[in-house]
Design a protein around this nucleic acid. Structure first.
Length: 189
DNA sequence: GCGACAG
DNA sequence: ATCTTGTCGC
C-alpha cells in the first residue's frame, strides 16, 4: 500500500506516480532476483507528451528497463486533436491490430492509435517509453489484449481496486475531505 | 460560456 | 480519475 499526496496535474503524471512505480520495481527485484522484467507496460504516455517525456519515459530511465506507454485517451499535444480527421481515422480501423500513426505538427510520429481487439470501437494510444521501438511496442501491446486494455495493466487495475475495497473501505479508508484538504491512499495507476 | 484535462 | 444511465451481447 502506498500513500499518494502529490496532486494529479495533466502533463506531470510522473511526478505523482513514478516514485511508487520505481518502488514496486525495486521490491520485485529484491524479493524475486530471478525475475527480471523484459519490459514494463505503463498506464500513461511515453514520448506522446507535452515535453516528449511522459511517465513511461521516467520509469524507464529510473529503472533501466524497457517501457511502453499505453494511454486510454489521446493527450492532445503537438497539434494532435480529436477532430473529425482523427475520428475518421478511428472509424477506418477495421480489426484488432489495425493502427494509424499519430503525427504531430512537428512531423514527428509520437505514437500509434491501436484498435486493440476486434470488437473495440475506441483505440488505445501506444507510445515509446524507453529502450523499444514503436513497432515492437505496438506488436507486444496488441499481443496481450484480450479486451481493450492490455491484460497486465487491466489486472493491475482490477486487483488494486479490489485490494482497496477490501482493506480501506470501512475501517479508516473512506475519503474524509475536510475543508482545504484533499488526499488519496492507493496503488492505482 | 466552452473546450481541455495521460491518471 | 469518478459518477450516472442505458444498451447490447454472451
Amino acid at each position: 500500500m502506498v500513500t499518494v499526496s502529490a496532486p494529479y496535474v495533466a502533463g506531470y503524471l510522473a511526478f505523482r506516480e513514478a516514485p511508487f512505480l520505481v518502488e514496486a520495481a525495486q521490491r520485485l527485484q529484491e524479493r524475486e532476483p530471478g525475475l527480471r522484467p523484459q519490459v514494463l507496460l505503463v498506464d500513461g504516455n511515453g514520448v506522446l507528451h507535452h515535453r516528449g517525456f511522459g511517465v513511461a519515459c521516467h520509469l524507464g530511465v529510473l529503472t533501466g528497463l524497457p517501457c511502453i506507454g499505453v494511454a486510454k485517451n489521446l493527450l492532445q499535444v503537438d497539434g494532435l486533436a480529436k477532430d473529425e480527421q482523427h475520428k475518421g481515422q478511428i472509424r477506418d480501423l477495421q480489426m484488432g491490430g489495425d493502427v494509424f500513426p499519430l503525427r504531430g505538427t512537428s512531423g514527428r510520429v509520437l505514437g500509434m492509435a491501436l484498435r486493440s481487439y476486434n470488437k473495440s470501437t475506441k483505440p488505445i494510444y501506444v507510445s515509446v517509453g524507453h529502450r523499444t521501438c514503436l513497432e515492437s511496442a505496438v506488436r507486444l501491446v496488441q499481443s496481450c489484449c484480450r479486451y481493450r486494455i492490455p491484460e497486465p495493466i487491466r489486472q493491475a487495475d482490477i486487483r488494486s481496486r479490489e485490494y482497496i475495497r477490501k482493506h480501506l473501505s470501512s475501517p479508516l479508508g473512506g475519503t474524509s475531505p475536510g475543508p482545504g484538504r484533499k488526499e488519496e491512499a492507493e496503488p492505482k495507476h
